[in-house]
Amino acid sequence: MTYSFQDERIMTSNTSQPLGLHRIKFHGKGGEYFAIWLVNALLTALTLGIYSAWATVRRRRYFYGNTELDGDRFDYHAQPLQILKGRLLVIGGIIVFYILLAITPLLGLLALLVLLALLPWIVIRSWRY
């Protein structure tokens, strides 16, 4: 499967240069991905979702590693433990939020305001993966 798109580059000088055409190729095969998907689904179900961080890394490495743009292939550098820690942190935050909401709704509202204030930082940090 091959896709094309125009490469728009901003030039520092005033000369205009024709836009380049780059090809995107995907070298993966359906059977290979199906095997990865099946193992990921089974292990995620058996471990009650814990393996999903490893499944995410494995899936993205397969897709990135088999995608080629202008002769270069992509790579995925996230580590599964980092993803798992991030997910556990989110789950812990949700649990703390609901406990605060149950104890005192005002504390729950305060926690929600703190979360909203930190949301831009959280989004930027999540883009690493």
Rank of each mutant, 00 (worst) to 15 (best):
D70N: 12
L43H: 09
P80T: 00
R87W: 08
A53K: 01
Y76Q: 09
I122Q: 09
I91K: 03
H77D: 09
A41R: 11
F97D: 05
L43F: 15
R60W: 02
I94W: 14
G28T: 10
R60N: 12
S16K: 02
S52V: 01
N40W: 04
G92T: 05
R23H: 14
L112D: 03
G65Y: 12
Y51C: 06
I103V: 15
I94L: 15
A117P: 03
P80N: 10
L19F: 11
V57M: 08
A78H: 08
I95R: 04
G93Y: 07
K85D: 00
L109A: 15
Q17N: 10
Y33D: 02
G108R: 07
H77G: 10
I50S: 12
I99T: 10
T67L: 14
Y33V: 01
V57I: 05
Q17D: 06
R73T: 12
V90S: 04
P120N: 09
F63G: 03
Q79K: 10
I83K: 00
L46K: 07
W54T: 05
I24D: 06
I103R: 05
T104P: 02
P18E: 08
V39A: 12
G49S: 08
L69W: 11
W127H: 11
L100T: 06
Y98K: 05
L42T: 09
L88W: 12
N66W: 06
F34C: 02
F26C: 04
F63D: 01
S16P: 04
L112S: 13
P105H: 11
G28N: 10
I24F: 13
L46C: 15
R23N: 12
L110K: 11
Y62E: 05
I91E: 00
F63I: 06
V90T: 05
I103K: 09
G30H: 04
I122R: 11
D70C: 01
L46Q: 10
G31R: 13
A117G: 14
Q79N: 08
W127F: 14
W54R: 04
G31M: 07
G108C: 10
A41Y: 15
L69M: 07
F26H: 07
L21C: 01
L46S: 11
L46R: 05
E32P: 04
I83Q: 00
V123R: 14
V123H: 13
T15I: 12
R87V: 01
S16I: 13
A111K: 03
A111N: 05
A35S: 12
E32I: 03
G30V: 02
A35F: 10
T47Q: 04
P105L: 10
L115V: 02
P18M: 01
F63V: 07
W37I: 07
G86M: 02
L118C: 13
K29M: 01
N66S: 06
K29Q: 13
T56N: 07
G31L: 11
P105V: 09
H22R: 14
L84S: 05
Y76T: 05
R87K: 09
R58C: 09
L107H: 03
L118A: 12
V57S: 08
